[in-house]
Write a protein that binds this DNA or RNA. Structure first.
Lengths: 239, 239
DNA sequence: CGTCACATTGATGCGGCTCAAGCTTCGTGG
DNA sequence: CCACGAAGCTTGAGCCGCATCAATGTGACG
């Protein structure tokens, strides 16, 4: 059930048998939620964190005029709000983008891990630090990359992240977002995202059709995006 | 020596006497560094984290064409790279913006804390999660706020953060950055930052002169920026 | 007193936004 | 089985916020 989380963590460090057992004991029955439902509202006080098993989820904030910025896309194996363990309330909302399955993990159980399993604690800490690293790369996109490069970069990042949890099919993967939602990730308008998708298509770099991203020229796409996966911290280290 | 760190943490939760003692035992002799020196280069493998005692520091990434995005400004009491405890190498560089004093804390000592002090561990974890929360708010600025609003928001954020560590003087504080460096925070050009500073001045909201920010109309500035400090997680909670 | 870094201002250009129309797809009900 | 509406995609025309280019000002320092 938490196999995708294990894939994600074991890409970065060893997880021992006891640690694995501790993780497997977390959470209750899986729950389901339909697309476009808010999973967590900003500022609610939380006593549990949510581990995504299936589907895709966004964290976002809105401005007063209704403009939305998506801060991160979450995929199976990600905690949606592990940071709520220490923050206690979120500064943003969390939305299901597709049909999702997840488990809720009470903070008590996570705190018990911080008492009994220092290394596993650091691995959970790692995963929140990884979220922050992804935030930073997105800041670089939003602040400095051109529109095409932002889009190309997003496609590269998701290809790597989904690959880790075995949700890619060679050079393609499912991305259940509308062009409007993509524009909310990239700080652009939906109209402009549409034009940039056309550009990637016309340059034979990548296509996005029927919720499937297909990368035709990985090296070209990476070059355009200036994508280097360092920020995803893919190497195995004792952490 | 670590008093500013204690101010920062105690704003958010109680820190017991033993925990305080553990923190005070961290690190060696304070070191100094001059402005515009790189403190940590991206991708170096690290075995220590740095606690800033004095001065101002930026974390940044550059694009191939030399454009720079600053991801966060650090002030006294902040760890510059506590996330390196679990990430082991940084995905960005760290630069002294002014003359700085800091101490280096070996990761061994921090790992010892994760073994002996679960609550203090969570407080350190909290502080990296706080960095991520600040990243998210900056993403909202970079993706969706107008140029003036971004600038106004930065001034509001620093006023609150510097207030916590007692580095404000009522409605003004020292900000030792050039307009170019401010533009690197905001995803703008230096020329445009100059014009936006003029706009804030002409609207009697705030001025920036001789490295001093003075806020003349706090409510007006916050309204323009749509600033709400929720994301700084200022309330005291058992964490 | 010359130099250098930084700030300021004006003129002009462009990347991405806005507005608007038409299209495709798909679910729903008669 | 088709009519209809809703949601999303596509494309064009025109515009605006911020960038670019360039010149001048200003203060610190050797």
């Amino acid at each position: 059930m938490i196999d995708k989380l294990l894939l994600k963590l074991r890409t970065r460090d060893e997880i021992g048998a006891e640690e694995e057992a501790a993780l497997r004991s977390l959470g209750g029955e899986p729950r389901e939620i339909r697309p476009n439902r808010v999973i967590i509202k900003a500022n609610e006080i939380l006593d549990r964190s949510i581990l995504l098993l299936d589907g895709m989820v966004s964290r976002f904030k809105d401005l007063g005029n209704g403009e939305r910025q998506i801060m991160e896309l979450h995929i199976p194996g990600d905690f949606l709000d592990l940071h709520s363990l220490t923050l206690k309330r979120l500064d943003h909302s969390v939305l299901a983008l597709s049909h999702c399955r997840y488990v809720e993990v009470p903070h008590e159980q996570l705190e018990a891990i911080t008492v009994r399993f220092p290394h596993l604690t650091r691995m959970l800490w790692f995963s929140t630090n990884l979220d922050a690293a992804i935030h930073r790369e997105w800041m670089l996109s939003l602040g400095r990359r051109t529109a095409v490069a932002r889009l190309a970069h997003l496609f590269c990042e998701l290809h790597v992240r989904l690959g880790i949890v075995e949700l890619t099919d060679a050079e393609s993967y499912r991305l259940p977002l509308t062009q409007t939602q993509i524009s909310e990730c990239l700080g652009l308008t939906p109209v402009h995202v549409n034009r940039m998708l056309r550009e990637l298509r016309e340059r034979s770099l990548a296509t996005f059709k029927d919720s499937i991203v297909t990368i035709h020229d990985p090296d070209g796409l990476k070059a355009l995006a200036e994508f280097t996966p360092d920020y995803l911290h893919l190497d195995r280290f004792p952490r």
